[in-house]
Simulated scan of single mutants.
Amino acid sequence: MSAVLKSAAPAPRARPLLLHPAAKPLLFVLCLLPFAWLFHGAWANTLGANPAEALIRSTGDWTLRFLCITLAVTPLRQWTAQPALARFRRMLGLFTFFYVVLHFLSYSWLDMGFELDAIVKDIPKRPFALVGFTAFLLMIPLAATSFNRAIKWLGAKRWQTIHKAVYAIVLLGLLHFFWMRAAKNNFAEVAVYAGVIAVLLGWRIKQRW
């Protein structure tokens, strides 16, 4: 009887491609492609009539996209039964921070000319800038504690509490994006991002309940 049960057991699963040694380097290169495209566009002057605005908006768009991708890792891991997806979450989160830094630097340089006084006065005057800057500040401790030593130093519970700020960050990022698009009465993309974020956060609320 035991022999029959053993023969009926499913065959061992093949090693997923997600665990291949080249998977992380490949993801790293893929995450750099938007930066490479923007860098080439700025160098070759192919970003349109207003390259400064194109750089600022594109880096902001990629920040929101990487936020959504990072938040999608956990539900995708469960929906696809691929726990190996979790090994890419930290890299995706750090690339989110990389693009938000580029976004802020593009604004500080191309809009404000790195004039600190002008930046300090400009951010509070414009609600969308204040919301975006708040999200940027909230991301700094997440990036600074995204390493194993930080988890050991803070403790798992405290580390998890800090990193739950990502939910506030993605909502602030969506509000920032909404106000940016509202200036041109363009809400199509906002609706797409809002739908994606609603699914990602709604899934987490359902899991918690």
Rank of each mutant, 00 (worst) to 15 (best):
M1C: 14
A3L: 13
A3S: 15
V4K: 14
K6L: 13
A9F: 09
P10L: 14
A11W: 04
P12Q: 01
A14M: 06
R15A: 15
L17P: 04
L18V: 00
L19C: 12
L19Y: 01
L19F: 05
H20L: 06
H20D: 14
P21N: 04
P21R: 04
P25R: 01
P25C: 05
L26T: 12
L26K: 05
V29A: 12
L32W: 09
L32A: 10
P34W: 06
W37H: 14
W37P: 09
F39W: 15
H40S: 12
A42N: 13
W43Y: 10
G48S: 02
G48Y: 05
P51E: 01
A52W: 05
L55F: 01
I56R: 11
I56C: 00
I56V: 11
S58G: 05
T63I: 01
R65I: 02
R65M: 06
C68S: 12
I69N: 05
L71Q: 03
L71E: 08
V73F: 02
V73K: 00
T74G: 01
T74C: 04
T74A: 08
P75H: 00
A81M: 08
Q82D: 10
Q82W: 02
P83W: 05
A84I: 12
L85V: 10
R90A: 05
L94D: 03
F97W: 08
H103I: 07
H103Y: 06
S108R: 07
W109P: 01
D111L: 13
F114A: 08
E115K: 12
A118Q: 09
I119G: 00
K121D: 15
D122Q: 13
D122T: 07
D122A: 14
F128L: 13
A129H: 09
A129G: 07
A129T: 12
L130I: 10
V131C: 00
G132I: 03
F133A: 09
F133K: 04
T134I: 11
A135H: 08
L138S: 07
M139W: 12
I140F: 03
P141Q: 02
L142R: 07
A143D: 03
A144C: 06
A144K: 11
F147S: 10
F147N: 13
F147V: 12
A150K: 05
K152T: 11
W153E: 02
A156L: 15
K157A: 11
W159T: 03
W159A: 01
W159H: 05
T161W: 15
T161Y: 15
V170K: 04
G173M: 07
G173W: 04
L174H: 04
H176M: 09
F178I: 08
M180Y: 14
R181S: 12
A182F: 12
K184L: 10
N185F: 14
N185I: 15
F187W: 12
F187I: 12
F187Q: 02
A188L: 15
A191Y: 13
A194K: 06
A194E: 07
G195F: 02
I197H: 08
I197N: 10
A198H: 02
L201R: 04
G202L: 00
W203H: 03
I205T: 00
K206L: 00
K206S: 00
R208A: 14
W209K: 05
W209S: 03
